[in-house]
Design a protein around this nucleic acid. Structure first.
Lengths: 208, 208
DNA sequence: ATTATCTATAGATCTATAGATAATGC
DNA sequence: ATTATCTATAGATCTATAGATAATGC
């Protein structure tokens, strides 16, 4: 039997992501977790704290990985491939439809400025790798700012495809979306980006 | 001076899209529209009716256009180019950040099944044109189902870029995203798709 | 008479706290 | 004594209705 905290967080994740934060009552969370409404407050100080526990680190894994990649000596197309595939795999691995909380209006509130800032930093890493790739002639497009925004938007759009459950595993989603990303950027040598990018992923995986 | 209905809808659009449906009170809407809370009910039967007026037709323009395109005799890459550019232009033309309501959890409620179904139909048109393009050798990818989902996700991701206001007009957004869409699909002849697709847009525009 | 607003308020929530209770561990 | 729950409830909302009021148009 899972701990009460975990049961509360699971119930809240399911409810917040289907009905939204404001549309979910503490009573609904509690009952889904098998408790009475006031018992939540023994484990969490407030409804907002429950939400913060769920969304406080949404971008963290991809951001950490991206930041580590910035100090790796590898071609920019490989770096971007690795980041894209990691990011998408992480999104597809999220439990419930928790990724849809990326777009919860409450996340834009001042209390969650830190979360929003992590998103901005991740986007800027996409931008950096795209720009470096264009400069190096690895991506044959001419507007890295616009293209990297589209690419970032594409990854965020992934969370709305959680209703699509073809048989693909999260890691297959990662590499396939990364392949399409290389097409979108008109990669000069997508096969090289793929193999070098996948190699960077392996390094990541084994260093855990 | 705009009509009270319009002022209410404008206020509600701004509030719903920044705070969400459940997070917006009828009092907040009324006061933003310059009325007292109960006066809303002279114009609308319920809070939900206000929401329905805003989101009831979100996918309609693109869907209508897409359905008209299905009976046009043109190469599939041109059809897809036209649909993509139209869709994105329409999204970038929405007032406020109303497009973010595409993802409001309330839209998944049974009352809005008709809206959700329009989205599904639009997605299936994307799918149809993509499949036809692959069959005709116009798109050099091998999984039209997956690719068209990504493409559709990309357009939906556009609404989250409403904070990005580079100088581009909605129609520039349309053609540029369509250009990137052709890359994503590995179009065999993107320039042809662009010129034929743009021509289809012109026909559309002038027949209004 | 109709239109468009208002004040007042009913009735249903909702979050969070107070304080009782039972079980566990020293 | 501490831990984890419970019942009861305070106090603040929130949606929607009732019914008064003022202005407009026949």
């Amino acid at each position: 039997m899972a701990s009460p905290e975990k049961q509360i967080l699971d119930a809240a994740a399911a409810l917040f992501s289907t009905r939204g934060y404001a549309g979910t009552s503490t009573r609904a969370i509690a009952e889904a977790a098998g408790l009475r409404q006031p018992s939540l407050y023994y484990h969490f100080a407030s409804k907002e704290e429950i939400f913060a526990r769920l969304v406080g680190h949404l971008w963290r894994p991809a951001l950490s990985y991206g930041e580590r990649l910035t100090s790796v000596d590898a071609p920019p197309d490989a770096l971007l491939y690795a980041l894209l595939s990691y990011d998408v795999e992480a999104l597809r691995s999220l439990p419930w439809r928790i990724g849809t909380l990326y777009f919860a209006p409450e996340l834009r509130a001042p209390e969650f400025a830190a979360v929003a800032e992590e998103r901005v930093r991740l986007r800027s890493i996409y931008r950096e790798f795209t720009g470096a790739g264009v400069a190096a002639g690895a991506f044959l497009i001419d507007d890295p700012g616009f293209a990297s925004n589209l690419l970032f938007g594409l990854t965020e759009g992934i969370v709305h495809m959680s209703d699509i459950d073809d048989g693909r595993s999260p890691s297959q989603w990662g590499v396939e979306v990364a392949d399409y990303g290389m097409r979108l950027l008109a990669a000069a040598d997508p096969a090289a980006a793929r193999s070098a990018g996948s190699a960077l992923r392996e390094v990541q995986r084994s260093s855990r």
